[in-house]
Design a protein around this nucleic acid. Structure first.
Lengths: 239, 239
DNA sequence: GCTAATTTGTTCGTATGTATA
DNA sequence: CTATACATACGAACAAATTAG
């Protein structure tokens, strides 16, 4: 070992050197093969892999089996406006995308404490759960899970299946208009099921938006939890 | 190999079994040691480690050297309201926290294309860059980078250093009020520098809020890019 | 307070599988 | 078809942090 190697692991030093090589332009698009990097940095191939893995976790690199390891170009993100009038179809058409919603599944559930609070109903009340996938131009943009009070919206599932629109399905139940009361945004790592639907790698990040829609009288009609692929979307708030 | 092992790697099957064990309550707080799991699932310890690593990347597990591997309890998140009147100090005091801002560094920079667009100035115009760390009750809540037109706000750095508040520093330059014009929210993996300031693990996720503040005349006074630790914060939008 | 045992982390070696060029 | 390159999986050893006694 060298003198300047105080307490830093080898794979981290290798990662730093790769990062530096990208920063100063020595490496532009594709990395040399792992075996070559191992030789160059005088470490085992596993050590190189550990370094690459950590840089891939940061989003800087992307490995493709049989092809090589590549530097990730930051992708331009599609904007998704968030506000009182948030509706999916209106949002994405404005950006020249043909949007479509697909029902992933639906089921009857009972309200737990959190849902009861959000929907202003009793714990244990019957709810319908709708899982939807939103796609624009073949690219999945979000998966969302909506909860509706079953007593007030008995035909919400069929209504959505037939019209492909929550707005229309609510109209069938006499709710002619609704607005977004509150939106909470956070981020987390994608779960395997969502990753499948969103066509994302398993280590991706999703933006999570938890919202409540209320009707004209302020009564909650829907509790919604939407997951957006962070690498493809940004949420935009304009007061 | 078994019959039921169609194309799924071993580490992934191990990960699924660990996930199931957590879901059904077999494992509550702490996982058995890696060596024991390796024996139980009849795989090499490396294979167990690969599985744990993937679950840790999801945020479900957390490994501590010398102690063991633990199930992560989802942490309650501090809410950060986003809106036209977004100001840091007002936001967190409402939740019983004593907030404080600390200047990380400041420097003079030239506007690139993106900054010039946001601040409505010429490319190459002189700007001041302020990097701040926000802390409440000893816990880092955000790091933010603000850009101010240097000609209009020549003493912004000193003003902030003395008052510890952007609002106050702007008042010294005659801007008595400002509002948030636009906020764009996305999420990404933390970079090492921010991770240090936010006291976060290197594989953490940050919520990124890019905003523009304008004065009463609608002139941009600040372009701001704030990074929040996603595991500690949520952004909340209430119209 | 010190030592030994436990447990995760790093690093090497080796072999084989699988996708791509 | 062959060579290349990343992915998975085993084994072995030691380092580093923590805990138990």
């Amino acid at each position: 070992m060298n003198e300047a190697d105080e307490g830093v692991t080898r794979w981290r030093r290798v990662a730093d050197r790769i990062r530096a090589a990208i920063a100063d332009g020595t490496v532009r698009e594709q990395l040399p093969p792992e075996t070559e990097l191992a030789e160059r940095y005088a470490v085992n191939r596993h050590t190189v892999r550990r370094a690459i893995q950590s840089l891939a976790a940061e989003g800087l690199l992307r490995s493709e089996r049989g092809r090589g390891t590549f530097v990730n170009a930051p992708a331009p993100r599609l904007s998704y406006p968030v506000g009182p009038r948030t509706r999916f179809s209106e949002n994405v058409t404005a950006q020249g995308r043909r949007p479509s919603g697909r029902l992933i599944r639906s089921e009857s559930v009972r309200a737990d404490k959190a849902l009861a609070d959000m929907l202003d109903c009793a714990v244990g009340a019957a709810l319908f759960r709708l899982d939807k996938l939103s796609v624009a131009n073949g690219l999945p943009l979000s998966v969302s899970t909506g909860y509706f009070p079953a007593d007030r919206f008995p035909n919400i599932v069929r209504g959505y299946a037939e019209t492909g629109s929550v707005t229309e399905a609510l109209k069938l139940h006499g709710v002619m208009d609704y607005r977004r009361q509150e939106t909470r945004i956070t981020a987390e790592r994608v779960n395997p099921v969502d990753a499948e639907h969103l066509e994302l790698p398993l280590d991706s990040i999703v933006l999570v938006s938890a919202a409540i829609d209320v009707d004209a009288d302020g009564r909650p009609v829907q509790a919604l939890r939407t997951r957006f692929p962070a690498e493809r979307m940004e949420l935009i708030i304009r007061p």
